[in-house]
Each structure stands twice: as C-alpha cells, then as structure tokens.
C-alpha cells in the first residue's frame, strides 16, 4: 500500500511539474501568436506545431536515449533521474496545448464571448487529467511510478486474479484523484462566476 502510494506520488510530481512549466511557456507562446507581431508569428506557430504534434509516447523514448544518465560536476557523480526525463517528455505536449488554448482564450475575450475564462479552465483541467493518465506510461522507460510498481508486485506474486486486483486497485487511485481535482475546479469556477 505504502509502496504503491509512493509510486503515485511520483505520478503526481511528474504531472504537476510538466503542467506548470508547460503552461507558462505555452501561454507565452499563445500571447505571441495573438499579438500579431510578424517577427514572432512564424516561429511561435512552428514551435506550437512541433510541441503539439509529437507524441509524448515517442518523446519518452527520445529523452531516455538523448539525455545522459549521469553527469560529472567537479569530480562528483550526479545521476539524472528517469522521472526528470519523463517530465520533460510530457512538458512538450502541454506547451502545444496551452499555446492553442490561450490563443482561443484571447480571441474569444476580444470577440466579447462570455465564459472564455471558464472554457480555458475546464479544458486545462481536462488536459491535466490527460497528463496524469499519460504519466502512467512513464513506466515504459523505467520510471518508478505506480504502474511500474504494480508490475513489480505482480511479477513477484503472479496469478491472474492477483493481477486484475492490483490493476483495479491502481485505477481506483487515479479515479479518486481525478474526482478530487474535478471537484476542486468546480469550486473555483463557481467562485469565479460569483465574483463576476
């Protein structure tokens, strides 16, 4: 139980970091695209396209092989943890998403459409969930997260019934946190609309 919880903490860490960093960069890109400055138009569109179109599934393999696993600084060894590589791989799609979504937001706001902020927030939470789900694939490159740990438990114990139980238990963790997240955002959205 504690073993799986520790793994899930890793999923959350990877997701929060890539969402945070990706959103900041992505919104900046979206603002540049919206600004209509010629000089920034092409590069920001290209950057968005690149980030949006390349699957994190492929990027995971890329980061695993492109980033060295150990760096030597002043004669000391530092291991580059795999979760950092997984976080980087997941940051790219977030940048693409946030760039598109914020462009939509800026456009809708200018057009005077109501609910632009809510639309952005709802889509953002949907995407956060998608990223939490995608963090489960980090086990493919050996990140020590919950699905990887579940597989360790299964190969230790064996048995079809046990496997199904463990997987269902792990999915409960994801469902529970997803519900929590959705409830939180509902609260925030209600607060926002009341304030408005």
């Amino acid at each position: 139980m504690g073993f799986l919880a520790g793994g899930f903490a890793m999923n959350l860490l990877i997701s929060v970091l890539s969402m945070g960093v990706g959103t900041v960069i992505g919104v900046a890109l979206g603002r540049l695209r919206y600004s209509g400055w010629r000089a920034f138009d092409l590069p920001s569109r290209l950057a968005t396209n690149l980030c949006r179109n390349v699957p994190s599934f492929v990027l995971l393999f890329y980061m695993a092989s492109m980033i060295p696993s150990e760096v030597v600084l002043a004669g000391k060894f530092y291991t580059v943890p795999i979760w950092i590589k997984a976080t980087l791989a997941l940051t790219f799609p977030v940048i693409g998403f946030a760039s598109d979504q914020s462009l939509g937001y800026f456009t809708q706001r200018t057009a005077g459409l109501s609910g632009a902020g809510e639309t952005f927030l709802v889509a953002w939470v949907q995407y956060f969930l998608i990223i939490v789900m995608a963090s489960a694939t980090a086990s493919i490159i050996g990140a020590d997260e919950i699905v990887g740990r579940a597989n360790t438990l299964i190969s230790q114990t064996g048995g079809d019934g046990f496997m199904l139980t463990i997987y269902l238990f792990v999915s409960l963790w994801f469902i529970f946190s997803g519900l929590l997240l959705t409830a939180l955002v509902k609260g925030v959205a209600t607060g926002l609309s009341r304030a408005a």
Partner: peptide, 10 residues
C-alpha cells in the same frame, strides 16, 4: 468518470 480517469494503458 471511469473511462476518463483511468490511464488508458491500465
């Protein structure tokens, strides 16, 4: 809820 909140790989 179940479809959206369970990782597709699981």
């Amino acid at each position: 809820t179940v479809a959206r909140m369970t990782p597709p790989i699981l």
